[in-house]
Design a binder for these strands. Structure first.
Lengths: 243, 243
DNA sequence: CACAAGCAGATTGTCGACAATCTAACAAGA
DNA sequence: TCTTGTTAGATTGTCGACAATCTGCTTGTG
C-alpha cells in the first residue's frame, strides 16, 4: 500500500470564508485603521446573515486586528507608532529564538522551501505587486518559525505577522511608489544556508531594521497630523484603541 | 480638580460573562482536555441562547484553549507533553525579554505591586487553595510582562498564561496533594528588587524549571497510558488536536 | 443663548426556529 | 463475514425577527 497523507478538507462554513475575506480586506488596507464595521451593511453585501458574520468578527477581535466596544461597534485597530515598535521589538526576540530552534533541523527540504519562497518574493517584486510582495516577504520570513517545531511559537508569530502585514501594507499604500527592484533578502537566505548561526541571527535583526525604520517614521508622521482620517465612521464615545 | 482615573465599566454583554465562565471552567480543570462542549446543553444550563454562547466559544478558540471542527463540535484542547514543552521554552524567551524591558522601569510602585502579589501567593499557599495558588503565582510572574510597557508582549504572555494555568491546574488536580508550604518565590522577588539583571534573568529560567519538570513528567505519563480518558464525548471523526 | 429632558433613528445584542451535516445503527448484498 | 447503502437521531450552522442600547437631534425652560 502506497503511503499517502491526505490533507484535511477545506472548511466549508460561511464563517470561515467570512473570516478570510475580512482578514484580507484588513491586511491589504482596504479597510482602514479605525474604520467601523457595520454588521448589517457587510452582511447584506456578503449575502450572509449577521450570525456567522458576528462570529467571524469575534475571531478577528481575538486575532488582534479588530477591536470591539459593546453596543458601539467593532473597529479595525488603530495603528500607533508604539504598537509598531512593540511588535517589532518582540519580533526580533522571536526571530532569534526561531533561528536557534530551526538551525539543527535544517535539511534539504528546508533549503528547497527557502528558495521557493525567495523566488516568490522576487517574482512579486518583478511584477510590482506590492501587496503580494509584502505577503511573500512575510512568508519567506516565516519559514524559520514554521520549521522551529514549536507550535506556540508559530501561533505567536502568525498573530504578529497579521499586524506587521497590515502595517507594511499601510506604509506601501501611503507612499504609493513602486518598490526598488533590488533584492533585499539575498543575504538573509544565504546566511540561513550557511554555518554561522550567530551571524544569521544578527542579520535577521539588522535586515528588518531597514524596512522598519521607514515604517516607523511613517507611523509617527501619521500621528503628528492628528488621529487617523478614517474616523469619519468612528464613534464619539471612545477611541477604539487597544480595548 | 483632583486627578482621578476611572476604570472602564464592566462589560455588560452576556457574551463577555459566558467567556469568563467558560474560561474559568477550563483553566481550573472543571472541563477536561478533549472534552466536547455541547452547545444546547450549556446554553440551557446558563439560561442563554446559543448565539452569544457560540460567539464566546469562537473567542476561546482564538484564545487557544478551545478547538473547533466544523459540524463536529468544539472541544477543550488536548494537552500533550510537546505543547507544554513548546509553551515553556517560549516562555523562557519572553521572560528574559520582559525582565530586560522592565528593568529600567522599576520604581516604588513596581516594588509595592511585587510585594502585594507575592503576599497573595503566600496567602493562597497558607490556605491550601491550590487553584488560587496557581492563579496568584502566575499573576506574580506576570508583573514583569505588564510592566515591560509592550502591549504585544503582554498579550502574548497572557495567551501563554492561559495554557500554563490549565496545565498546572491539571497537574495539581492529578496529584491531589497539598502543596509544600515553603516559599518558592522568595529568591525571585529578591532578585527583581536587586541590581543584577542577568542574575534575575537566569533565576527566572531555573526557578520555573523546577515546577515545570514535574509537570512535564506528569504529561508524559498521561500520554503513555493512551489518549485522555475524557474522550468519552469525543468524535470518532478526528482527534481534536491542534486544528 | 445655555442646558437638560426626551424623542426618533440607527446599530448592536439576543432569541427561537429551521436547514445542513455528521454519527451510529441497521439492512441488503456479495 | 465483510462491505455498502439507507435511515433516524442528534448536533452544529444559519437565518430572520425582536429587544436593548447608543447617538444625535429636537424641544422646552431658564
Amino acid at each position: 500500500m502506497a503511503k499517502l497523507d491526505f490533507n484535511p478538507i477545506a472548511d466549508t462554513t460561511r464563517r470561515a470564508e467570512i473570516v478570510a475575506l475580512l482578514r484580507r480586506a484588513i491586511l491589504t488596507g482596504q479597510l482602514e485603521p479605525g474604520q467601523k464595521l457595520n454588521e448589517l451593511r457587510i452582511s447584506e453585501q456578503m449575502r450572509v446573515s449577521r450570525a456567522p458574520l458576528r462570529e467571524a468578527m469575534r475571531e478577528l477581535v481575538q486575532e488582534g486586528i479588530l477591536t470591539s466596544i459593546p453596543y458601539a461597534g467593532t473597529f479595525v485597530i488603530d495603528v500607533t507608532a508604539k504598537d509598531i515598535d512593540d511588535a517589532y521589538s518582540l519580533n526580533k526576540v522571536l526571530d532569534e529564538f526561531a533561528i536557534a530552534r530551526t538551525w539543527p533541523l535544517r535539511d534539504q527540504r528546508f533549503f528547497d522551501e527557502l528558495d521557493r519562497r525567495h523566488a516568490a518574493v522576487k517574482q512579486a517584486t518583478r511584477e510590482l505587486d506590492t501587496t503580494r510582495q509584502i505577503e511573500t516577504a512575510l512568508q519567506l520570513h516565516g519559514l524559520i518559525h514554521e520549521w522551529a517545531d514549536n507550535s506556540v511559537l508559530l501561533e505567536t508569530w502568525q498573530r504578529l505577522t497579521s499586524r506587521l502585514q497590515m502595517y507594511f501594507a499601510l506604509h506601501q499604500r501611503a507612499r504609493n511608489e513602486p518598490v526598488p527592484a533590488e533584492d533585499a533578502h539575498e543575504t538573509y537566505v544565504r546566511l540561513l544556508k550557511g554555518t554561522d548561526m550567530r551571524a544569521a541571527q544578527r542579520h535577521a535583526k539588522e535586515h528588518i531594521d531597514f524596512d522598519f525604520e521607514a515604517l516607523l517614521a511613517y507611523a509617527r508622521g501619521l500621528e503628528r497630523r492628528g488621529p487617523n482620517d478614517a474616523s469619519r465612521a468612528s464613534p464619539t464615545r471612545g477611541r477604539p484603541g487597544t480595548a
